[in-house]
Computed example of a mutant assay.
Amino acid sequence: MKKSFNEIIKPVLVLVCICLVVTALLAYINSVTSPIIAKAEQKKTEQAMSEVLADADGFDKLEIENLPDRVTEVYSATNGSGYVFMLTTKGYGGDMKLICGMKANGTIEQCKTLSHSETSGLGSKTAEDAYRNQYSGKSSDTLSEVDAITGATISSTAYKNAIEDAFKAYNMVKEAEK
């Protein structure tokens, strides 16, 4: 009987204790680091917002109902210079998080990729300046002039569809302001 306890139960108890200690340590580390990570992500987002809408002096989050599927948040520049749209779309490799700054007249100032999991060398080209700069100065009428990336049609089409949703959201915001 004693042999059974030492061979079976004791190792199980030791492993359970180790798991409990490790779980408690991970929970503590998570509670310490999650506010720091959230603050860093917020700072990164604010910096990206300033990059895509350079004339803005600050941003106010708008609460608009029934936004297009790919639009997650909308911000208005406090000085009225334009709007920033936070977008999430499904590319070839997974979710792509984008940000699009539009001037008050409805033309894109700049777009930027915040994160993606696209194939390196193909779909990841949507995050490069050569692709995203095509959107600068475009309106909903001239968006068709943007060229897709050869070999990465799914990723570039997903990017373009997200920008189309940003234009739909822009129209909704303008309508709500009337």
Rank of each mutant, 00 (worst) to 15 (best):
F5Q: 09
E7D: 15
I8H: 04
I8Y: 12
I9S: 08
V12F: 13
V12Q: 02
L13K: 03
L13G: 13
V14D: 11
V14L: 14
V16C: 15
C19I: 04
L20H: 00
V21K: 00
V21E: 01
V22F: 11
V22I: 10
T23V: 02
A24K: 00
L25I: 10
L25A: 15
Y28A: 12
Y28S: 12
Y28C: 12
I29D: 12
I29H: 11
S31G: 14
S31I: 09
V32C: 04
V32K: 09
S34C: 01
S34D: 14
A38Q: 12
A38S: 14
A38M: 09
Q42I: 06
Q42R: 07
K43D: 12
K44Q: 14
Q47I: 14
M49T: 02
S50W: 03
S50G: 15
V52I: 11
L53E: 00
A54E: 14
A54Y: 08
D55L: 14
D55R: 06
A56V: 13
A56P: 07
D57G: 14
L62E: 07
E63G: 08
E63W: 04
E63R: 04
E65C: 00
N66K: 11
D69C: 00
D69H: 03
D69F: 07
R70P: 02
R70H: 10
V71Q: 04
V74A: 00
V74S: 01
A77W: 00
T78S: 13
N79H: 00
G80T: 01
Y83L: 06
Y83N: 04
V84M: 01
F85H: 03
F85C: 02
T88F: 02
T88R: 12
T89N: 09
T89A: 15
Y92E: 05
Y92R: 11
G94E: 03
D95R: 09
I99S: 00
I99H: 01
A104G: 00
G106S: 02
G106N: 04
I108H: 04
C111Q: 03
K112V: 09
K112C: 05
K112E: 11
T113V: 15
S115N: 11
S115K: 13
E118T: 09
E118V: 11
T119I: 05
S120D: 05
S120V: 05
G121S: 02
G121N: 04
G123Y: 08
S124W: 07
K125I: 09
T126H: 06
A127Q: 07
Y131W: 08
Q134S: 05
Q134E: 10
Y135S: 02
Y135F: 15
S136P: 00
S136F: 04
K138T: 14
S139T: 15
S139D: 10
S140H: 11
S140N: 12
S140M: 08
T142W: 06
V146H: 01
D147G: 05
I149W: 06
T150A: 15
G151C: 10
G151A: 06
I154D: 01
S156H: 08
T157Q: 11
A158P: 13
Y159T: 01
Y159W: 08
Y159A: 07
I163Y: 05
E164I: 12
E164T: 13
D165Q: 05
A166R: 10
F167S: 05
K168M: 08
M172T: 13
V173L: 00
E175V: 04
E175W: 01
A176Y: 06
A176H: 03
K178L: 09
K178F: 11
